[in-house]
Amino acid sequence: MKKIIISDPTLRDGSHAINHQLTKEQVSKYCSAIDKSGVSIVEVGHGNGIGASSIQVGLSKEFDIALLESARENLKEAKLCVHCIPGFATIKKDIKPALDAGVDIVRCACHCTEADITRNHISYVREQGYQAYGVLMMAHMAPIDVLVGEAIKMESYGAEAIIIMDSAGAFLPDKVQQLFTSLCDNLNVHVGYHGHNNLGMGVGNAIIAANSGATILDGSARCFGAGAGNTQLEILVPVLEKLGYTTGIDLYKLLDAVDFISEEFKSSIPTVNSLNIVSGLSGVFSGFTKHVLRISKEYNVDPRDVFFRLGKRGVVAGQEDLIIEEAHNLSQEKIGKAT
């Protein structure tokens, strides 16, 4: 039976859903519960990764290190993992303290066409004897051959796995199948999939990825993640088991951990609403949703129009300021039409 490594980004991607207001107590309780289930990897921190707490993408309630220390104390079996986007995160300021705090895996992420910027970060982590993964975000924005080329670069830098991140939940099964088949043909390391649910494809695409060679799958409790949320962990695991894969996860203990998320964050559990669907269709990062909604209201424009405009411009995370620009343009056009 093929073994699938389950990586749980609930306490990282889910941070987007609560404007990065995660507390040490919440981290402790969830880590303690999920550790008992047998999940292999638990990701913790600001939604945009370590060092990302900022006015532009949102200030964290707690320092990164405080969250990581709480997680470390409660993870006895699972590996502790951080998301790390070079630029937000620097080696000296963020990665080194994170490793000192007990992090096992650093997932070095970048826009899917810019693997070059992860070289120093991946190399540093490997040189220190820790595990480094490469993450290609917004993967729907690049053709398959480009993604494979960028993944090969990350492998050459020392990445022990390449994770494909469908940040906008825009992937459809055919592309997932072609992409993972091609990645597995060209790489000698693990390949993984991180899905979002904008078009309802979270679990489906993860299964297609596994069938095409992926060995690491991300899933969040109750989809707790940016925008429409991630692949739903507590559905993904039993479906994989039914299909003959092994995950090493105890379903009841997993469901216990999921119940904590349901209770603790009941007002913030992601749903696939109209805006999320538009986000997926326009190929814009799910994490933009809250900002688009707020700014559209301010400029009195239809947020769905804003999403499609942003999609046409090919915006990526970090370009949140363009939301204001497009909302402003739309409002001006509206005034022009009215007069």
């Binding site: 190399s123 490997r126 040189e127 004897g129 050459s156 830098y157 020392g158 022990e160 000698n188 390391v189």
Partner: peptide, 23 residues
């Protein structure tokens, strides 16, 4: 720190292992 298998193996071993064979 060079990205070749044998270098990584030696690095892993000097750091106390385990030696990881990727691929």
């Amino acid at each position: 720190d060079k990205p070749w298998a044998i270098n990584n193996f030696i690095n892993d071993a000097i750091n106390g292992g385990p030696i990881k064979i990727l691929g």
